[in-house]
Amino acid sequence: MGQGVLLSESADIDFMVHGVFSYSFFGHTVWITTTHVCVLIVMLVIIGFCFAANRAVKHASEVPGTFQNIVELIIEMLDNMIGGVMGKFSPKFRNYIGTIFIFILLSNISGLFGLRPPTADYGVTLPLGIMTFVLIHFNKFRYQKVKGVVAGLCDPWPFWAPINIIGDVAVPISLSLRLFANVLSGTVMLALVYGLLAKIAIIWPAVLHVYFDLFSGAIQTYVFCMLTMTYITDACTTDG
C-alpha cells in the first residue's frame, strides 16, 4: 500500500527495529529483536571492561599503568560529577548513576560501530525513566515521610493536587522521550544519508557521526543523569 509515498518502502533506507527470531511464550509470539542483540553486545562490552578493570585494580601498583590510569580517571570523573550535584546523598546513588551513565553512553555511541543504538528503541528508555520515577518516589516517602509527601502534593492549595500528580507522572515520560527522540533522530538522519545519498556518501558522513553519535549521545547521557540526580536530590531533601 502506498509504495512511493513512503521512502522506507522504495529506497534502501533502514532504521527500524527488526525481529531476529520469534518464539512462543505461553501462546504469545515473542520476538527477539535487533534491540535485544545490541543491548546484549553493549552489556558484554561493559562486563568485559569490568573484569579487566577489576583485575587491574586488584593488582594495582603504586605507579599506575595505562589501563589503571584510565579506570581511575573514569571513576574520578563520575564521582566528581555525582558529588557536585548530590552532595551528601552521593555515596548512596553513586553506583546506580554511574551504571546508567556508562550504559547509556555506550548505547548511544554504539551507532558508530554499526549497531542500531539500543536507546533508539522506546522499550529501552522507558524502563530507565521508570527506574528514575521509582527511585524518586521511594526516596520521597523515605526521607519526607507520608506527611511531607502529602504536603508536597497540596503545595499551593489542596485542590492543586491533580496537577501536581500529572507533573509527577510527566517526569519519567519526558525523560525517556527526550533520550529516545534524540538518539532516534540521529539514527534516522544517518540512515537517510546512507540510503538516499549512497553514491556520494563516502567520507564526509564521519562528520555527521561525530555530531549525532558522539556529541549528541554524550550530551543526552549527561542530561539524563543530571536530571535524574536533581530529581532524586530534590526528593531526598526535607524542606520543612
Binding site: 519526558s174 527526550r178 534524540n182 550530551i219 542530561v223 536530571l227
Partner: peptide, 10 residues
C-alpha cells in the same frame, strides 16, 4: 539547551 530541545523532539 538539551532540555529546551525536548519540545522540538516531540
Amino acid at each position: 539547551q538539551a532540555v529546551a530541545e525536548t519540545t522540538g523532539l516531540y
